[in-house]
Design a protein around this nucleic acid. Structure first.
Lengths: 212, 212
DNA sequence: ATATTAGATGACCCGTTGGTCAGCAAGGGG
DNA sequence: CCCCTTGCTGACCAACGGGTCATCTAATAT
């Protein structure tokens, strides 16, 4: 009888499996504290194999981030730009939901990893800056400007700083990673509160001059 | 002629000097990437001496954080609680200035260090949570509530989530550490914008029912 | 069956770094 | 002036972990 083979050849699946394992390990311990050996164990793979698919530990890390970020961002942009809702309805509906989910999904982990490890990987940061930050800001800006154009909103600093809407998302991510078990925070409510306050501030409820 | 002595005995000053050097090194490279030897070099001290005053590398790190945080927070609380200004004036004046300075001072570095290294040092995080976060929130809450009490402000979610005012501070800290050289951000304006928006939202400019 | 290719293994190498310790020297007291 | 205390030194150690490579074996071609 033929004994069970010690391993199978699965060239196609290995990179994904390793990336997935690396995601878990990096998330838990950060870049420096993660041992390549642990990633291998989790992926059920030997060290040699990992180094067949990834040149260095850093290369592995970058793959983890990029493989996660790219599809997310693309999906996101599409969703936002193809919505027919007016600005406020969109913000209070899909946009709010999206921000709230960000904090409870893998994105949270990725955001944290980028904050923590970013400074050590300048090219990765640059990539992220151009693709996620810049494009994200642009989309949000467009949305606000649209609202201003059809008198839904009054002109405000939010046009220049659309990131303000994401403040509570950042607070939530950081809070969860540091204080979650020590002191609870209702992140959904926090995010909703900021949106509500901002909308109150930029909606023209009372007589207001609009200077071109 | 007596040759210059190789070193002086300065028991009193050593801990501070080492802490100071450690602050610089930890700020630049983070905990894991900082070598104890480098801290020693910067402090002009041998490794043995460092380990005379600090039990481990981690102990040194905690000292750095605590030594910086404690006096800052105390001074801060005093300043806030002893101000006679009405709520809005205080927020637009000293409070705004303080938030803006936070981003350009050593506090920025400490905030970043805590975000990055916090999860690895639970007791340090707990300490920070109780002393800085909890007390800070309480003070801000008091301020907002005071404003609501004398009809300066309308009731709002800001009473429950005073942290919202700090959102842009966090954004600024993170931005500076990641993207500063790649894409500029006027952090002062960002922080001022958030304050302005929030104040617009909670000021009773038009007929508004106040439900007890 | 056998040969060949290439996916996969893991023992090993070696630079790095947190932490130690035997001993040196500053400087105050007798 | 000398001695003793103790602040201080830096060579050294041991563990650790990223990366390599000689080797093995599953799959495939002949």
């Amino acid at each position: 009888m033929p004994t069970k083979p010690r391993f199978r050849r699965r060239k196609e699946d290995r990179p994904n499996e390793i990336t997935e394992a690396a995601f878990v390990e990096f998330s838990r311990k950060g870049y420096a504290a993660t041992r390549v050996t642990d990633v291998c164990k989790r992926a059920g793979v030997s060290k040699g194999l990992l180094y067949l698919y990834f040149k260095t530990k850093e290369d592995l890390f970058k793959s983890v981030i990029r493989n996660f970020v790219v599809p997310q961002v693309d999906a996101l942009k599409l969703a936002i730009e193809s919505s027919p809702l007016p600005a406020e309805a969109f913000l209070r509906g899909p946009f709010l939901k999206l921000m709230q989910e960000l904090v409870n999904s893998r994105a949270q982990t990725v955001i944290r990893l980028l904050i923590v490890e970013g400074p050590k990987h300048p090219d990765l940061t640059a990539y992220y800056c151009d693709h996620v930050i810049a494009e994200g800001s642009a989309v949000m800006q467009k949305l606000i400007n649209k609202g201003v154009a059809n008198r839904e909103f009054v002109p405000s600093a939010l046009q220049e700083f659309p990131q303000l809407l994401l403040g509570p998302v950042l607070i939530s991510v950081v809070w969860k990673s540091l204080f979650e078990r020590h002191r609870a925070l209702d992140t959904d409510a926090l995010i909703a509160a900021q949106l509500d306050l901002v909308l109150k501030a930029i909606k023209p409820t009372h007589a207001q001059e609009v200077t071109a």
